[in-house]
Amino acid sequence: MNTTTPPPNFQLSIDQCWVLLDSEVVGRIALIVDGHPEVFPVNFVLQRRSIVFRTAGGTKLWGAITAKPVAFEIDGYDSHEQTAWSVVARGEAELIEDQADKDAVDELLLEPWQPGEKNYYVRLAPKALTGRRFKVNNPDVWHTRLADPRRASFE
């Protein structure tokens, strides 16, 4: 194998993307705010094939409901398989206003991590959902940062 050829990416199916989304609790919402990109970490739940998070009034809320489109991303690393993965959802965010819908989300235990009032519920129903998984390079144990998760397979 030619060492200059990058390893193949393995595209994930939509169902695989949903399974990975369901395995995480924190993701990043990417918005355009005042003409430039902003990325906000949010904890989230899945409800009816959509991503839901809570927020306070402010930049994140305003950007989420006025920025068209928005993106949401999660990623992870499987030390046993030595693979990394990434899932990206794209679509439009909307404010959930119906109390029954909010109650249904609350039943999924969407509790904000950050202190303060987080009374606004935002839903992203993806129009595009893509993901990929790829084999990571073996770490050079002597030159890899201690915090690099690839080291776990050697320790």
Rank of each mutant, 00 (worst) to 15 (best):
L95G: 01
L110M: 08
L61H: 06
R132T: 06
S13T: 15
V136S: 05
I14N: 07
L21E: 00
M1C: 12
E38K: 12
D78R: 09
A147Y: 12
R123S: 06
T5R: 08
G91Y: 08
D78I: 11
D148K: 05
G57S: 15
S50D: 01
P126L: 08
R48F: 00
L109K: 15
W113T: 10
S153M: 03
E107M: 06
W62A: 13
V122S: 07
A30N: 08
Q11K: 04
P112F: 10
M1R: 13
V25S: 15
F53G: 08
P6R: 00
H36I: 07
L109R: 15
P41W: 06
R145F: 04
Q114G: 00
I51V: 12
I14E: 15
Y121V: 07
F10D: 08
S23V: 01
P126H: 08
G57T: 13
Q82V: 04
M1S: 15
L129N: 03
V45I: 01
P149G: 08
P115C: 07
G116E: 11
R145E: 14
L124S: 06
H143C: 03
V26E: 04
V105W: 07
H80C: 08
I74V: 10
E97S: 11
N138R: 06
V52F: 00
F72P: 01
L61Q: 04
R133T: 10
V25L: 13
A89D: 11
P37E: 04
P8D: 02
L12A: 01
S23K: 06
Y120G: 00
Q114L: 11
P41I: 03
C17E: 00
L110Y: 05
V136L: 10
P6S: 01
V42G: 03
G27K: 09
D15W: 04
